[in-house]
Amino acid sequence: KTVEVNGVKYDFDNPEQAREMAERIAKSLGLQVRLEGDTFKIE
């Protein structure tokens, strides 16, 4: 899975870890996480 923030992509081998990281980043920035294919987009 991939986490994308402001056009910057971070790859994770563990999908659960990617989801947790995406949620943590989104919460700290006051944004939403949206799953698009294999990418968690933070917008």
Rank of each mutant, 00 (worst) to 15 (best):
K1L: 11
K1W: 15
K1M: 15
K1E: 04
K1R: 13
T2L: 07
T2D: 03
T2I: 12
V3Q: 01
V3M: 03
V3T: 01
V3E: 01
V3D: 01
V3W: 02
E4P: 01
E4Q: 09
E4K: 06
E4C: 15
E4G: 02
E4Y: 12
E4N: 07
E4W: 13
E4H: 07
V5R: 01
V5P: 00
V5K: 01
V5S: 04
V5Q: 02
V5I: 13
V5E: 01
V5F: 15
N6F: 15
N6S: 07
N6I: 06
N6E: 07
N6W: 13
N6Q: 08
N6M: 14
N6D: 10
G7F: 04
G7V: 02
G7K: 05
G7I: 02
G7Y: 03
G7R: 03
G7C: 12
V8P: 00
V8E: 08
V8Y: 10
V8F: 11
V8C: 15
V8L: 10
V8K: 12
V8H: 10
K9L: 10
K9F: 09
K9T: 11
K9H: 07
K9Y: 09
K9E: 05
K9D: 03
Y10M: 10
Y10D: 01
Y10T: 05
Y10R: 04
Y10A: 03
Y10Q: 05
Y10L: 08
D11C: 14
D11Y: 15
D11R: 15
D11A: 14
D11E: 15
D11T: 15
F12H: 03
F12G: 00
F12M: 04
F12I: 05
F12W: 04
F12E: 00
D13G: 08
D13H: 09
D13S: 11
D13M: 09
D13R: 08
D13V: 09
D13L: 09
N14H: 08
N14F: 08
N14E: 09
N14G: 06
N14S: 14
N14A: 07
N14T: 14
N14K: 08
P15V: 12
P15K: 07
P15S: 11
P15N: 08
P15W: 12
P15T: 11
P15G: 09
E16Y: 08
E16G: 08
E16T: 09
E16S: 09
E16N: 09
E16C: 11
Q17H: 12
Q17N: 08
Q17F: 09
Q17K: 12
Q17I: 11
Q17E: 15
Q17W: 07
A18T: 01
A18H: 00
A18M: 03
A18I: 03
R19W: 12
R19G: 03
R19I: 07
R19M: 08
R19H: 07
R19T: 04
R19L: 11
E20M: 10
E20A: 11
E20H: 08
E20D: 10
M21A: 13
M21K: 03
M21H: 10
M21D: 03
M21Y: 15
M21G: 02
M21R: 04
A22L: 05
A22E: 00
A22C: 06
A22Y: 03
E23H: 12
E23K: 06
E23W: 09
E23Q: 09
E23G: 05
E23C: 14
E23P: 00
E23D: 11
E23M: 10
R24W: 13
R24V: 09
R24M: 13
R24N: 10
R24G: 06
R24Y: 12
I25L: 10
I25Q: 03
I25S: 02
I25D: 01
I25E: 04
I25W: 12
I25F: 07
I25Y: 06
A26N: 02
A26Q: 01
A26W: 03
A26K: 01
A26F: 03
A26E: 00
A26V: 02
A26P: 00
A26D: 01
A26T: 01
K27D: 10
K27T: 11
K27H: 12
K27R: 11
S28E: 15
S28C: 15
S28M: 14
S28T: 12
S28D: 13
S28H: 14
L29R: 03
L29Y: 06
G30A: 04
G30L: 03
G30I: 00
G30R: 05
L31D: 01
L31N: 01
L31G: 13
L31S: 07
Q32A: 13
Q32I: 15
Q32G: 10
Q32F: 11
Q32R: 10
V33Y: 13
V33I: 12
V33D: 01
V33Q: 02
V33E: 02
V33R: 00
R34L: 09
R34H: 11
R34E: 05
R34N: 07
R34G: 04
R34T: 11
L35E: 11
L35T: 06
L35Y: 12
L35G: 02
L35S: 05
L35A: 05
L35Q: 09
E36H: 07
E36N: 05
E36L: 04
E36V: 11
E36I: 08
E36Q: 07
E36T: 05
G37F: 06
G37W: 04
G37A: 06
G37M: 04
G37E: 06
D38K: 05
D38L: 05
D38E: 08
D38Y: 06
D38Q: 07
D38N: 12
D38T: 09
D38G: 12
D38W: 04
T39H: 06
T39F: 05
T39G: 06
T39Y: 05
T39W: 03
F40P: 02
F40Y: 15
F40A: 02
F40E: 01
F40V: 02
F40I: 08
K41T: 07
K41Q: 05
K41Y: 15
K41H: 12
K41E: 02
K41F: 14
K41C: 13
I42C: 04
I42Y: 02
I42S: 01
I42N: 01
I42V: 12
I42E: 02
E43G: 14
E43Q: 11
E43S: 12
E43I: 14
E43Y: 14
E43L: 11
E43M: 11
